[in-house]
Structure formats: structure tokens, C-alpha cells
């Protein structure tokens, strides 16, 4: 029998997060006016109550975790390299945030489409490439010309 289970780890994570919220985040990032007469009307009351409840739930998870039969680790992935692919996907998302205002939404979306299709090893690369061009263009046409949304155009190539 293993000594630590996933339920326990989730409970410990909940305890850690709520401790950080109670001890650091609420005192620093929730402002309360000095003239609040009763604590129940204070802007800090609700966050403290919710964090306190999270502590209780975290404790419950830790306690019940001792009796859990659930493994801490997941079943091994059939296709190796999952963490590497996830890290790359994270990088794609970060780059997207930087590229959106500079390249524009349409061109960035085309690149994201191709990158994601490559990452998930699309078995239809030609179809993926065609869709990578057509899908962002079709969405641009709808949102910009039908829904009148100001889709970011970027600094280089602008669409009508």
C-alpha cells in the first residue's frame, strides 16, 4: 500500500492555497474602508469566510486521503512525451499573447493552428494546412463584418 494518495495531495494543495490567501493575498490585495462598522459588511469578510471553508475542505481531503486507494501517479501515457508536448503548448499560448497585438489575430491564429496540429501529430497534414488558412479567415469575416468586432489587425499585413 502506498503511503500518500492523490486525495491527500489535493487536500494539502488546498490548505497551502488557502493559507497563502488568508495570510498574504487578502491583507495585501483586498482593501477595506476604515469606516466599516460591522465585519459582515466588510469587503474582506466574504473572502475570509470562503478561504476558511477551503481550509476545512482541505483538511477533509487530507483525512479521507489516508483511506483512499487512488494512486498518486496516473496510468502511464500510451504515447510518450506528454509533458514535453504540454510545455510546448504552454509556450504556444505565451507566444500567442505576445503575437496577437503585433501580428494580428488572423495571422497568429494561422500559426497556432499549424503549430497545434503539428504538436498533436495530425494524421491529415494537408487538410490541417488548408484549414489553418481557411478557419481564421472565415472567423475574421464573421466577427469583423457580421458581428462588427474590431479584430486586431497587427502591424504588418492588414485585411479588408
Amino acid at each position: 500500500m502506498q503511503s500518500i494518495h492523490r486525495q491527500t495531495v489535493i487536500g494539502l494543495a488546498a490548505l497551502l492555497v488557502s493559507a497563502i490567501i488568508i495570510l498574504i493575498v487578502i491583507p495585501t490585495w483586498v482593501s477595506s474602508p476604515s469606516n466599516v462598522r460591522n465585519i459582515v459588511l466588510s469587503p474582506v469578510f466574504w473572502p475570509y469566510i470562503l478561504s476558511g471553508m477551503t481550509v476545512l475542505i482541505g483538511l477533509g481531503l487530507v483525512v479521507t486521503g489516508f483511506y483512499s486507494s487512488e494512486n498518486l501517479t496516473h496510468e502511464p501515457n500510451d504515447i510518450p512525451g506528454g509533458y514535453r508536448r504540454l510545455a510546448l503548448m504552454g509556450a504556444i499560448m505565451v507566444i500567442t499573447m505576445f503575437a496577437l497585438p503585433r501580428l494580428g489575430m488572423v495571422w497568429t491564429s494561422m500559426l497556432i493552428f499549424v503549430a497545434t496540429a503539428a504538436l498533436i501529430r495530425s494524421s491529415h497534414p494537408k487538410t490541417a494546412l488548408i484549414c489553418a488558412v481557411l478557419v481564421p479567415l472565415a472567423l475574421y469575416a464573421f466577427f469583423a463584418h457580421v458581428a462588427s468586432v474590431a479584430i486586431p489587425q497587427g502591424d504588418y499585413v492588414r485585411l479588408p
Binding site: 489575430m105 497545434t116 496540429a117 501529430r121 495530425s122 490541417a128 472567423l139 466577427f143
Partner: peptide, 13 residues
Amino acid sequence: GVLFPGVLVLCIY
């Protein structure tokens, strides 16, 4: 492999 990249782009828009 085509559906999910499409979903991602749709989400962004």
C-alpha cells in the same frame, strides 16, 4: 488533428 486546432482558434476569436 484538425478538429482540436480549429476549436482552439475558435476559442480565441
